[in-house]
Computed example of a mutant assay.
Amino acid sequence: MSWLERFEEPVRDVAARSRGAHWARAAFARITTPLLPDDYLHLANPLWSARELRGKVISVTQETEDTATIRIRPGWGFSFDYAPGQYVGIGVLMEGRWTWRSYSLTSAPGTGGAAEESDDKSIAITVKAMPEGFLSSHLVNGVHAGTVVRLAAPQGEFVLPEPLPAKILFVTAGSGITPIISMLRMIRHRKQHSDIRVVHSTPTPDDLLFADELAEMAADGVIDLHVQYTRAGSDNPGKVTPEVLADLVPDWRDRQTWACGPSGFLDALHHMYVDGGVGEHLHIERFALERGATGAQGGTVTFTKADRSIEVDGATTLLEAGEEAGVIMPFGCRMGICQSCVVMLDRGAVRDLRSGVEHVEGERIQTCVSAAAGDCTLDV
């Protein structure tokens, strides 16, 4: 190792904008060894970091029995110019590991975590605890005010254009209302005017998120609201199918539509709009990774650099396979969005669990949304 490499060793994994900045940081790191400058920043304030975005949970508010809104005050470096409808990555330290997921922002820029709370220094996400959701259950039932989390910058293309279309339709189901409420809060905050129809389905009145706020928006004429309760019962009309939607919104072809909810629900809407000749009017946000049937395909996954292998089924992601085999895997959002998990596929084939498309050796693939399509080898 050369003298320059030894000098820069304490900060070799830390990005810098210029060579001079890297040398200055290395010099300061040498003076403060064995601590890096970020370690001293963290001692002064846990939200200060030159290397990553952080935030502190300031409140957890129960919305329904299994859903909560988590308000977070971001630290240094977070940009509040996000667009309503975008999502944010959040990392929480659990059992010694940082676990990451992405959630739609339910706050709107400049309005804080809720419509009635004006706080342009906070953001909010509303999370539903899922039976298979390790982090979602912890966020709803285990995280407390004061918890420091890691953040990824807001991103996503599920946003409204400027100016607003003259006629808008929001079609959502369950927690699919979360990105839409951010849009509605911003529209109300800016006093924008448009013909907005909202069709939302949820099992029961107890499951309805933002019930009071939606009712208030409807009463004030901001939206024309229809809530459909889907759980079987004499008073419940059932799910919102394309046929039901066409009856509820006869002019749906004339409206720019934003839809979010379960995959089957969105697939039906997609076919409805394409068959109706207005596929370009439909904007979809999908939350969950769609997995194939357990046991379909699969194979032996070999990790070259780690010299380890593991047998997996066709519903286990390569990221999960690596972690189960004890391989250190790069990852970020774990939803196929942030590209942090991209590695080279050396041999074999893998299947993208979202689209079913197969990728072959020599391609770079996302391990968090890909599964083995037979035996394969990764450059990890």
Rank of each mutant, 00 (worst) to 15 (best):
D275V: 12
S175N: 11
Q256A: 13
F170Q: 04
P131K: 00
V143L: 11
R25V: 08
F265I: 04
P154T: 11
D119G: 13
V92I: 11
A211L: 02
G277K: 06
E363F: 07
L160W: 01
G261E: 02
A153L: 04
E311G: 11
R286A: 09
W48K: 13
V342G: 04
W258F: 06
W23F: 15
F134S: 06
K128P: 12
Q256R: 15
L248Q: 13
V14N: 00
L151H: 07
I196D: 10
L151N: 10
E157F: 06
A129M: 02
R19H: 02
T69F: 00
G299R: 08
G322P: 10
I168F: 01
A24P: 01
T377N: 09
V88M: 10
D224K: 13
V227A: 10
P46R: 01
P154W: 02
D267P: 05
G292W: 12
V278P: 10
V327F: 12
A16T: 13
L345F: 07
G112L: 00
E117G: 14
E116F: 11
H138R: 03
M329D: 00
T33W: 14
G110M: 05
P330C: 03
D375S: 04
V171A: 15
R253L: 07
T300R: 14
S79Y: 03
Q228N: 12
T126L: 03
N141A: 10
I70D: 03
T64K: 03
I284G: 09
S234C: 08
A219Y: 04
A259V: 09
H193K: 15
V350I: 00
E52I: 14
R30W: 14
H283P: 03
L139A: 09
E116T: 15
V171T: 06
A114N: 02
M94N: 01
T172E: 06
